[in-house]
């Protein structure tokens, strides 16, 4: 049995404080620029938490989760921009499409051990970029699709200030984190843990690896698709480079790695640290130097793998254990 809290009331108090800090953020962050960044933290934090369900919990590294993100994003802008339908209808559509792609990619690769899943997911990315670029009737080609300006409100997901959108994104993040925590403590979470630690032994212990991985992948794809749908609504624009960018995949992996892949709150913590930092860096570095920010990401990934594979969460849990004598 893992993670007994030092005491339950303390933990609930901590969650309440964290929730209050999140939802009151627009009050104490007065500039709308900061709120916009927080929207990105929530959306990418949620997406990274989704990636972590399969990538972190089961150690099945997906390098193609951008595809689910892009499917969700395109669903919104196509529904709103081309069809004139509600973005709320786009979200389930995006989920269904993403889950279909997830099943198609998981079905052959999860029957194989080894590197096939990572290889296949990476190969998925250029294919969707090609489809989005050349299926012009649907996606507007490389020009992309813009959503026209509609009356602001919850039904159009367009607002005069970024603050209402922030609340929607924050609710998504909280829901996704609840899901991630629930999975971590469910039977599925234990199965994924077993697969991560020792695949052969997990099979001997009666874990159906294929089914467990498929369940995690489907949930993961659905979560990332919803985050993508809201991202599309937030930007009110989508083109192939934005939807199916290698950088998105990279960010999802990196946030989870930095925060700690073994913790349900790890990816969100990573996003909270790295997105503001990235925004700051890209404002400072222009021209050829812009690449240096990305280069730092690469260096960070390698350093994490070599020296701190458990991320900040790992450091935190060591400190916690020393202070309280209990495991986090």
């Amino acid at each position: 049995m893992r993670s007994l809290p030092t005491s339950r009331p303390w933990r609930i108090a901590f969650y309440l404080v964290a929730l209050a800090a999140l939802f009151l953020a627009p009050v104490y962050l007065q500039s709308s620029y900061s709120v916009r960044i927080l929207v990105l933290v929530c959306l990418f934090g949620a997406a990274s938490t989704g990636w972590n369900l399969i990538g972190g919990y089961a150690n099945q590294i997906s390098l193609g989760h951008t595809v689910f993100f892009g499917i969700g994003a395109y669903a919104t802008v196509i529904f709103q921009g081309t069809l004139g339908l509600s973005p709320w209808l786009a979200i389930p559509t995006g989920i269904v499409l993403a889950v279909i792609v997830a099943l198609l990619i998981g079905w052959p690769t999860f029957q194989l051990s080894g590197h096939y899943f990572a290889l296949a997911t990476l190969a998925l990315l250029p294919v969707f970029h090609i489809i989005a670029t050349y299926w012009e009737d649907l996606t507007g080609g490389s020009v992309g699709i813009s959503v026209p300006i509609l009356p602001s409100g919850l039904d159009t997901l367009q607002f005069d200030t970024p603050t209402p959108f922030f609340y929607i994104a924050a609710v998504l993040l909280v829901l996704v984190m609840i899901l991630a925590r629930w999975v971590r403590q469910s039977v599925l979470g234990l199965q994924l843990d077993a697969i991560r630690l020792n695949p052969q032994a997990s099979t001997l212990a009666g874990v159906n690896q294929f089914r467990a991985k498929m369940k995690a992948l489907v949930m993961s794809a659905a979560v990332v698709a919803v985050a993508g749908s809201l991202y599309g609504a937030f930007l009110q624009f989508m083109d192939p480079d934005t939807a199916f960018s290698w950088n998105t995949t990279l960010n999802l992996v990196l946030f989870a790695m930095v925060g700690g892949v073994r913790f349900w709150w790890g990816p969100a913590l990573g996003a909270l640290i790295l997105i503001p930092f990235g925004e700051f860096a890209s404002a400072q570095l222009t021209g050829n130097l812009a690449a240096l920010g990305q280069l730092a990401y690469g260096v960070l990934l390698i350093l994490l793998v070599l020296f701190q594979p458990r991320g900040i969460g790992g450091l935190f849990s060591i400190v916690w254990q020393k202070a309280t004598g209990r495991k986090l």
Binding site: N59, I61, L63, V253, Q294, L295, I302, L304, V305
Partner: peptide
């Protein structure tokens, strides 16, 4: 990382690729 889990190997080589690509971008421009 030769004996590390597969995920560590994937992340390390992906990170290496990012360093090479962006290093080239910083030197030669995009």
């Amino acid at each position: 990382i030769i004996k590390a889990p597969q995920s560590a190997q994937i992340i390390a080589t992906v990170g290496l690729g990012i360093i090479l690509a962006n290093g080239a971008a910083a030197i030669f421009g995009n």
